[in-house]
Design a protein around this nucleic acid. Structure first.
Length: 273
DNA sequence: CTGTTCTCCTGTGGGC
DNA sequence: TGCCCACAGGAGAACA
């Protein structure tokens, strides 16, 4: 499940291989993703050069002369680079190929099809999906003052608030769980009930846990190229996520699981208050 | 506004 | 051991 660190790793994995290159063809084998993939993607992209690759929240943005590709990996999406397209036969869930002028293929793979592959004839900043997103968690705009203000009137569980993209982007279920554990805060607490010191701890926990995961991801970059395997994403070790009934790594008390906002929520009742 | 529920989809795993 | 069904999850949309 690609969280922000995996998306960032994907960006770093694909960018050097497609930057500046020209699209020879685009093949769409399955257009039913979260939103329909443009049927005329080939007509749109042919002959266009990749001007830049970037990321906003968990969206990848590939900029061309006349617009941008907006790619979201959803739950199970991945992008792979193949240096010789004809060497790699498309598998069951290989939905989209972009073939470049030097033979490089960028392939979108997504079994559950929660992802998105959209074309937008405009600048990224004005796209509706990106326009009202909160700050990037690793940017200077994400700090305790900001979070305190954002939480001020929120009665919803702090975990839900943390996962709200209008508050801060890129904090999915896994890292929301992990951050709250690191900050020693119970996930069910109303966001507005957090004290200033707790908000400071939480801000640093979010930043730290994502930063460390991105650093780990760096070592797996080669997996994005010419890889036969399909794991792709690094297996991070989690302190609470998925550790229901296992002993807390800090105090030994069994990790508990509950449901908050329809999502599995893991926490140590002894370490988090 | 704020908060909650629904929805898309398929591979995995827990239960029997 | 084998089968089957519930579950998991990002996040926008719809709704109260």
């Amino acid at each position: 499940m690609p969280e922000l660190p995996e998306v960032e790793t994907t960006l770093r994995g694909i960018a050097p291989h497609i930057q500046g290159k020209s699209v020879v063809s685009a093949t769409v084998r399955q257009s039913k993703l979260r939103w329909p993939v443009p049927e005329d993607l080939n007509d749109i992209l042919q002959q266009q050069n990749v001007l830049s690759c970037s990321r906003r929240a968990k969206y990848l943005i590939i900029r061309f002369q006349t617009g941008i590709l907006l790619i979201h990996l959803g739950m199970s999406g991945s992008l792979r680079i193949y240096r010789n397209g004809h060497d790699s036969e498309a598998g069951k869930h290989d939905h989209i190929d972009l073939v470049f002028d030097d033979g490089t293929v960028m392939r979108y793979h997504d079994p559950r099809r929660f992802g998105a592959f959209l074309w937008y004839a405009g600048a990224a900043e004005t796209h509706p999906l990106l326009a009202k997103l909160g700050p990037e968690p690793l940017s200077d705009d994400f700090h305790a003052d900001y979070l305190a203000q954002a939480f001020q009137k929120r009665q919803s569980p702090v975990k839900s608030a943390l996962m709200d993209n209008a508050v801060v982007v890129g904090v999915g279920n896994i890292y929301a769980n992990e951050s709250l554990f690191l900050a020693g805060i119970a996930p069910s607490r109303p966001a507005a009930s957090l004290t200033r010191p707790e908000i400071e701890l939480l801000t640093e926990a979010v930043r730290g846990v994502l930063q460390r995961a991105i650093e780990k991801g760096g070592s797996t970059l080669r997996d994005f190229v010419d890889s036969e395997g399909n794991s792709g994403y690094f297996q991070q070790e989690y302190r609470v996520y998925g550790r229901h009934n296992q002993p807390c790594l800090q105090c030994g008390h069994p990790i508990e699981k509950s449901i908050i906002g329809q999502r599995g929520t893991f926490y140590c009742p002894q370490c988090q208050h």
